[in-house]
Design a binder for these strands. Sequence first.
RNA 1: GGACGCUUAGCUCAGCCGGUUAGAGCGACUCGUUUACACCGAGUAGGCCGCAGGUUCGAAUCCUGCAGCGUCCACCA
Length: 882
Amino acid sequence: MDEKDFPKAYEAAEHEDRIYKQEMDSGFFNPDKLPGERKEPFTIMLPPPNVTGTLHMGHAVMLAVEDVLTRTARMQGKKTLWLPGTDHAAIATQSKVEGILMEEGKSRHDLGREAFLDRVRTFASDSHDTIVNQMKKMGASVDWSREAYTLDNARNRAVNEAFKRMYEDGLIYRGKRIVNWDPVLQTTVSDDEVDYREERAPFYYFQYGPFVIATSRPETKFGDKHVVMHPNDERYAQYKDGQQIDLEWINGPITATVIKDEAIDMAFGSGVMTITPSHDATDFEIAKRHGLAIEPVIDMEGKLLPIAGGFAGLPIKEARKKIVKKLEEKGLLVKVDEKYIHRVAVNSRGEGIIEPQIKEQWFIDVNKPFKMRQSKLDGIQAGDQVTLKQLMQTVVKNGQIKILPERFEKTYFHWINNLRDWNISRQIWFGHRVPVWYCKGGGGRGEGGGQEIQVGIAPSGDGWEQDSDTLDTWFSSGLWTFSSLGWPDETSDLKTFHPTTVLETGYDILFFWVARMILMTTYLLGDIPFKDAYLHGLVRDEKGRKMSKSLGNIIDPLEMINKYGADATRLSLLIGSTPGNDSKLNEEKIAGYKHFTNKLWNISRFVLTKVEQTMVPEQVEPATRADAWIIARLANTHYLVTRHLAAYELSAAGETLREFTWSEFADWYLEIAKTQSSANTEKILLYVLDKLIRLWHPFMPFVTEVIWEKMGNKDLLLAAAWPKEMVAPAVMEFDQVMSVVSSIRTLRSLYRLPPGQRVRVSVFAKDATILKEESAVIETMGKTESLTFLETPLHQKGLACAMAGTVSVYVDLAGLIDPAAELARLSKELEQTQKYITSTSARLANKDFAANAPVEIIEQTKKLIAEAQEKVALLAGQLQSL
RNA sequence: GGACGCUUAGCUCAGCCGGUUAGAGCGACUCGUUUACACCGAGUAGGCCGCAGGUUCGAAUCCUGCAGCGUCCACCA
């Protein structure tokens, strides 16, 4: 190939879009269109990104990791499906659109349900397009023909069916519970979606009859007619459970009742508190335990109700000050702690401050036993009575699902143990509508005029109204692995690709999503959703902070791709990080991998412009020691990379490959190839390059496809075969020699020898026998440099070296280098080696070691000592000749 | 309050179900480069593997305690 067809620098931007299009158009992203007979399925469901905007580095990691796994599987001949999609992300998306509306001075109520939903759909659709484009830029080899959306019609059928089955099994129920209410978005959120923010707020101590009570929320205290203390609290032993006490309170005299409950922390504050069951989860439970009346104080907009008397209608914040002032005037304010820090609950998907409220909501009961319909789960059979919690625990405990890294299994079990019923209804508009219809006022169907309800499928006839709530977004994403394959229909996709092979996602959504998928799948299919759950870490900035808009530390994947190429961006996210651990990213790192991309490009440039032939040989025979060595190293690299990939050790796989590519193939063998030009060398160069490009492809799809193309391949690398296991020639014993060789060019630069310099050369075999000794001249012939032997008598002083394949070439550099420095270097090395021999021999001589260490360790130790002794002899000889 | 993780070279991190003289990338320094590639090459320096104990023939690796940092869960009226 002519050099001008092969530019010196790889410009990613010139190739990437074209390559992606070719790959996509090939149809190979679709498992049905892959060439060859493929039986073993490999499935990954893309964790669907939220349609809330654009992709960030976290998504980029996910795409990079999954693409490596997918492309590897595809090359390894598996029936490979990576199914893409997006998530409607109910609350997050609605909140985003409401934010946009707010800037226009409108609210969703101004638009009405349908107009608002249209607006959200437009936004979601725009986001979707942006996301799809970004995924393509990353090189994600997903099957676009199977793309799904968590809120499309097919998924809605799945949601309704799932809901129906759970309802019929009594696992979904409707009930009045205390829930996390977001007064801004006017919806409940699940426990997992509540974040806590630390805030300094005044902490008030009030006189409440004979007691002092403490609170940071005086505005909730109107309805408090019960004062609670621990039954074992000596200080309040004189007060009995149920005792009535008259006292003066905010709006005048009231009668309070004493309650004894163990939920009280005696050490906190005064050890006495009043309770507000309507607006506090703990208080609610106490009230239920003691059968107390539950009266709301705050309305759904966050304003005080008539129970507050003169304060009714005031928003919380305003009311608080006024109430404190009033209590102060009445002389009931004991003291104020201004330094109190408490944690404020906020909606993590919006920004509203959570106000616990009592609402009628839909729940999934995780503790209620039901009869298992079907089961492929180890230890559970069809007909068994189980709970959802048990299902979730069983499949991880019995090893059917492996969570990687393993330590997250502990976290997972801990979460399940503390799991409460899952609130699945939301009062927002965007999302799957709760599939329940009510028929009010008779109509002939209902019995005794009660409200009739139908679940799952929309009823025909008049008078029916659908529940106005929507479902938690995780309800639909919990079905993802099979809803995306057509469930509840028994599609052939479902049979072929489910359970999926691996779920790859960030550890931050272990609870939200991973656990819920396990819940839904084990319940609905009696099967696992995936075999492995591989959790990647979070990408942080160089200071270890989360990337966020407010910090302005976001590294935009698209910008990096434009600047450094998708391959470099991918490598920077894949290499140098381990599963489950966060990693820090900075632009320099990405730039570094751009250099590597270019290196691979130039390796190919060298090989392809040098070789005459272009046919990649099936097999190669080493003609020189260097040949044997590089083939052996390639075989070893292939073995390690394949094994690492199978174990999800992507970073280790990448590092192994990089080491071989750069340090061994490029820096070493290519230099040798310059001096040992032959048809066989060319074969080997092509052979190694071919394997290398294949092995790199999952990591760097773009540059490898381009090189592949330049190698004269007509078909895409995408569907090419992963190299078969290679047999390494037996060259390991030459290790020592190879480790000191370098090119003549290097030799010359190292010792600053001008061309034409006369040197003396000794040619040694591995066993140190001298094969040939001659004088030589370093000559520059055209582009290459070589040693020209002069057939003059030779000297014994062999020092630094060049090499030729089958032998070591030691060049006598006496008089050309600083003898003192060389002496020092050799002495130091000798000393170190001797020290090693001493300590290792001592260990070997230890009788406890001999008695206890395994044989192979002892053998290994002996071998190492022998090798070191050999080295000492060699070094000593060199020193002496100096 | 409960749990988990991290602490290894100047920086970012591998290694960790015990076993070669503890590694890589970046950075620093020295030298080289009309050569596939300066998006380059050859080298050098740089480590009580957080601290203190313990187990073992042998510990960066296992156990205990401590310290610092981080994350998650629960949540304080």
